[in-house]
Nucleic acid binder design. Structure first.
Length: 238
DNA sequence: GCAAAGATTTGCT
DNA sequence: GCAAATCTTTGCC
């Protein structure tokens, strides 16, 4: 397999993440998320993200100020912020804006372009690790279910992106803009930019207005890989 | 020190 | 459609 098969790509420019997070979100849609080599690694394009902007954003982990967990959000742009949610799922964020300002983009869904088998293997590995103690039948059912998943559904949610790309706390702090990183971003070299729609963020009912209704979820409308909780939103200019 | 909730996903009723 | 699984982080005593 060659780069041409994926339409070509190159290191993701850090400056596209260094200022306005909403603009960065639109830029990140369509970008490649890559684990390992283009040959045997996982390659996908980002089709859904959510923005968490500033300490004033009452839906953000940064709403209580800097803590041990969210410190990465205050760091330099282009770095991975990975956390564990609900005791079992990891979530991958790309830090945005200048160092000292807490902002990040949660990668909610990726459309697999290459390394489909590696993604399935990683998903099965993850399911097996999680089902320890629940017996062999449970593990077998999980394997069968994952093997039967359509390609487009292998990374269609924030927890599933991390399972398919083997991302855990060990990836926290990785520079995603460094071409030498095993986990990294690359800028797509598409003929046409993907359409981008916006909608309120998911799973933040604890947040007061106006944060709850801010249309800070960005996604490719109609794409089969967007998370199951996604719904239609307003189309915006890239 | 302890109780409560969470940027999720799956499986069962 | 709802509850369980599971554990770190946060907030209050």
């Amino acid at each position: 397999m060659s780069d041409a098969q994926f339409g070509g790509s190159r290191a993701f420019p850090r400056h596209l993440l260094a200022t306005d997070t909403e603009a960065a979100a639109v830029r990140l849609i369509g970008a490649r998320l890559i684990r390992g080599s283009h040959l045997d690694g996982q390659v996908g394009r980002i089709v859904e993200v959510e923005a968490y902007i500033g300490e004033e954003d009452m839906a953000s982990h940064a709403r209580f100020g800097m803590t041990r967990r969210n410190a990465r959000m205050f760091g330099p742009p282009g770095v991975a912020y990975v956390y564990l949610v609900y005791g079992m799922y990891h979530c991958l964020n790309v830090v945005t804006e200048a160092e000292g300002r807490a902002a990040a983009l949660l990668i909610r869904a990726v459309e697999p372009l290459g390394g489909e088998d590696a993604m399935r293997a990683a998903r099965i590995r993850w399911a097996h690790d999680r089902s320890r103690g629940r017996g062999a039948p449970a593990r077998t059912r999980a394997s069968i279910r994952i093997q039967a998943l359509p390609r487009a559904r292998l990374a269609s949610g924030p927890g599933l992106v991390c399972a398919a790309f083997s991302i855990d706390r060990g990836a926290d702090g990785v520079d995603l803009c460094d071409p030498g990183s095993d986990l990294r971003l690359e800028l797509a070299d598409e003929d046409e930019p993907l359409p981008v729609a916006t909608a309120p963020r998911v799973g933040i009912s604890y947040a007061p207005e106006p944060w709850r209704s801010r249309k800070w979820r960005f996604f490719v409308p109609g794409n089969e890989s967007i998370s199951s909780r996604a719904s239609l939103g307003r189309v915006v200019q890239p």
